[in-house]
Every structure is written in C-alpha cells, then in structure tokens.
Design a protein around this nucleic acid. Structure first.
Lengths: 192, 192
DNA sequence: TCAATTATTGACCGATGGGACAATTAAATA
DNA sequence: TATTTAATTGTCCCATCGGTCAATAATTGA
C-alpha cells in the first residue's frame, strides 16, 4: 500500500505553487503557465490534476486555510483557560509565517473573487464560521451570553482589518503592532 | 466660457461606469467593452479619454473615494464636539449608499490590485492618511496623546474589517449591525 | 462660411491565456 | 515480460481583451 500516491503529492505541490504565485501576481496574473513553471512542471499537468483554474485556486484557498487553521488549533490545545484560548486564536492568526504582506496579498486576491465564485464563497463562509465558533467557545465563559456574538464579530473584523492593512501597506504595519491592537481591544472590552 | 466641457462630462460618466461595472464583474471581468457599453458608448471612446485601463480604474477609485470623502466631510461640518466628529466619521463611512455589498465588492477588487499598481497604492495611502487625520483631530481631545494613534488604527481596522465582511457575505452583515459594532467599540474604549 | 479641432466609431492587430488533445514516457500490476 | 494504467509534455485552437488607427461626424471659433 502506498502511503502517498504520486497524485496526492502533485496536487499538493500545485496547490502550494498556486498560492505562492498568487502572492506576487494576483489572480489575473497567476496564470496556469506561471503556476506550472513555479512548481517545475508543464501547464498540461496542472489541468491533468485540476479540472480548471477555478478548481486549482479553490484548492489553494483550502490549503492555505488549513495551515492557518492548524496553527490556531495547535495553540488552542495548549491553552487551559478561556482567556488563554482567546489569546491562542489571536496569536495563531498573527504568526510570523502567516501575517506577511505577500500572504495577505494572496488572501486579498482570493477574497476579491468570492462574490463571483460560489465555491470560494463557500470556503470563506466556513472560515468565518470556524473563527466564530472558536471565539464563542472562549467568550461564553468570559462575557454575558448576549454580548458574545457581537464581540466575536468585532474580533473577527479587527483581525480582517489588520490583515487587509498589512496587504495594502507592506511596510506600515508590523506583526507586533497588530498584536498590540488585538490585546488592547481585549483589555478594554474584556477586562480580567 | 464652458462651465462643463464635454470631455469633463464624458470622463466622469466613464469613471462612474467603470466603478459600476467593477461592482458586478470584478477587475478582470470589468472589460473596456463592458464599461463602454454600460456608459452607452463604444470601447474606442474609453481609450480616447483614458490612456489605458489602468488609468481608467485609477480615476474610478479616486471618484469613489471622493464621494465617500464628501459624505464624511458634510457630517464633519455639522459636528460640534470631538465626540460628534468621531461619530460623523463613522456614520459617514456607513451611509446606506456606500455600505452595500456591491460597493464593497468593487473596493475589494481595487484593493486587490494595490500591491501591483503603484498608482492605486498611492491613492490607497491617501485614503488612509485622511482617515487617520480625521480621526486624530477628534481623538486628541478625548484621549491622552499617546493612545490616539493606536485607537485611530483600531477604528480604521474595524471599519475596513466590517466593509470586507460586507463584501464577502452579502446577506450576513447589515448596516445597523456594523454601526452597532462601531458604537460599542467607542463605548468601551472611549467612555464619555 | 470654412477651417481646425474634438468626439466617436468600428475595424483591426497582436498577445495572451485557458483548455483540449494526441503522443510519449513511466509505473504498476498480473 | 506483457499489458494496462497513470504521468507528463508540447502543440494546437479559440476566445478575449487591451490597445492602435484611420475614417467619419460633430463642434467650435475665427
């Protein structure tokens, strides 16, 4: 029995190549040929493993989300208190390897396609649902029930807004500044 | 002397058409032909008034920003207190005619191009600079100097995050919800 | 009125990119 | 080994799109 079929390997390579090209080229510039070249393959192979460009980037988005998701979950596993879980979620979302201008570019490019690509919309919906669910599981122990929903939305909006900013102004916003923003929000909104 | 040269009219019509097409089609789908058709003209005329597609959408972004800007300024003029100015800025940014899914789509599409189009980046920079300046002029009267910068960034990030969300999930986020989010932030961060 | 400028169109071009496909090579399996 | 299955490539095709251009219509202004 094969642990890793070659098709699984190729698909993963191509998903990642797609996301990396996206970082520098945007959706329109992320051509099948460039993705293939970036992965050291030919254009034909890309369409051998993915039915279309759409499908490729759909999987690229899933992959990118998965790795973010794992980072958050790893931190969540360590956390013992509700407050700790809140911090885990936030810090996971601002890890150095994720909170980088080029990565934010890529996400921006994907988000810009969401309104016109139902598949991407579904993924985006899942992402937000998980974020909300994660946050709620911590917030219910820290706040009156009625306030949790709103605070979860605020935290999500803040994170998204900071990511957006990082994507727009490469230099302007460091990881530390972003994390401080989040901590300050918590300090005022959910004092210990 | 002509008050409005025909060229000024055409250019404005085309800028607006460009932004409207952007709302439904995204940057890649917003073809010169579609923009022209939407304005009831031919493709040739678009390139007669704008050197290139880039330049057209650059002007579209400026135009869209201008109208948002005017809305905020109109409210700012009415405001008499620092707190009132803060609310003016926020409410201006969530007026019904602006805070709509399709408009948010269009902005998203423009933002996604920022990293690869220096002209758009410059405009984006100006937008954020004005936002910051507006906010600071109110905040300095409400908070210790040292905290103003951070709060201005938080407010901006919140606004951007809520806009982003509106662009991603057409249904999920109403204007009222967004405004409540902003008011809650102020309530906790800058209690009267 | 008539020349000069401006507006407007439609045809055309070159480039590009997504996708289909046949052909070739490698791998797996019996 | 022989046969089937999968991997991989390069070529080809078609559509589209940005941009150029020459020709025509409209406007202007002297």
């Amino acid at each position: 029995m094969k642990l890793t079929k070659i098709s699984a390997i190729r698909r993963k390579e191509l998903r990642q190549a797609a996301f990396e090209v996206l970082q520098q080229e945007g959706m329109a510039g992320a051509t099948l040929e460039k993705v293939a070249a970036h992965a050291g393959a030919s254009k034909g192979i890309v369409l051998h493993y993915f039915r279309s460009k759409q499908e490729l980037f759909e999987h690229a988005m899933r992959e990118a989300n998965l790795s973010l998701s794992e980072a958050v979950n790893a931190r969540l596993k360590q956390a013992t208190t509700p407050r700790g879980r809140l911090e885990a979620i936030i810090e996971g979302n601002f890890e150095e390897r994720f909170f980088r201008p080029s990565i934010c570019h890529a996400w921006l490019s994907l988000c810009a396609e969401v309104p016109r690509e139902p598949q991407l919309a579904r993924i985006q919906k899942v992402i937000h649902a998980r974020m909300r669910s994660n946050l709620m599981s911590a917030l219910v122990h820290l706040l009156p029930r009625a306030e949790c929903e709103a605070v979860a939305l605020a935290i999500t909006a803040l994170i998204d807004g900071l990511w957006l900013r990082a994507g727009l102004q490469s230099e302007g916003l460091t990881r530390d500044m972003a994390l401080n923003q989040m901590r300050e929000y918590l300090k005022y909104r959910i004092p210990r």
